[in-house]
Amino acid sequence: MSKPERDPYTGLMTTGHEWNGIKELMTPIPGPVKFFLALTILSAVLLWILYPTWPYGPGYTKGVLGVDQRTLVENNLTKSAALRSVWEDRFTSAEMSALEADDDAMTFVRSHGARLFEDNCSACHGLDAAGGPGFPSLTDDQWLWGGDAETILETLRVGINAPHDETRYAEMLAFGDQGMLNSEERRTLTDYVISLSRPDELTKEQKELLPAGAELFDANCSSCHGEDGGGSHDVGAPNLTDDFWIYGGDAASIAATLRHGRIGVMPYWEDRLSEADLRLLSLYVRDLRPNQQ
């Protein structure tokens, strides 16, 4: 313990405590500290009076402004609903075809629809809507369930293989895993499916087996994909004669599809987006097809 002493630099007294050479000055609390302490405490008290703050047994002080975050949010929601109602009403009441023909409406679809699409659909279908492995492209005008605006709207509303009572349902059977076709037969069928769009890729030996493939196709696949492999919008079976593939069109991918089956899920949006947003999105997707404006 040392005695209080005068610090030569500041001229202030020390407290007289010392710890391994460290001393402390007896400087009084500077004015600004007191001032801001008072100021912040005052503003705190003011905020306590204005807003809900202190709990007591059965409740809490409500504050003289009488605001509550729930009512604040509700007011904001009402306000923006009023702003939206201008176009929402038109989009829910007008015929889809009328909207499609209306340039003003479609300009709005292209701007607002893009954001709706990016926020809700891009995670699977991609920012450019071109899809990816397992997720169909929406820009090629090739459709599983049909591509006019009303049909797309229905797909959005109920989803595909989704937990919605009216969901669209389509399953590509696991012909291999379920023992319906042996590997020999599946190989033949794979070549046959390739022959539907790219016959030049097959070797001579493979071509010789095509008639057998056609027979297998007829017996096992045509009920959904159609006799010519052209697909069917009624059951959501894809066209196998074109160049568009969801899971890949190379031999290995087709073989995997045949063996393990496919049952992709498109979520349903009925409870998650408003009627107006759903219709707007349908128009937006419809508008993505090639050669639009």
Binding site: Y9, T15, I22, L25, T27, I29
Partner: peptide
Amino acid sequence: PRRAGRPIFSYRMS
């Protein structure tokens, strides 16, 4: 304070 070789500015502020 060790490094600076100076006393703490104010005990009361501490």
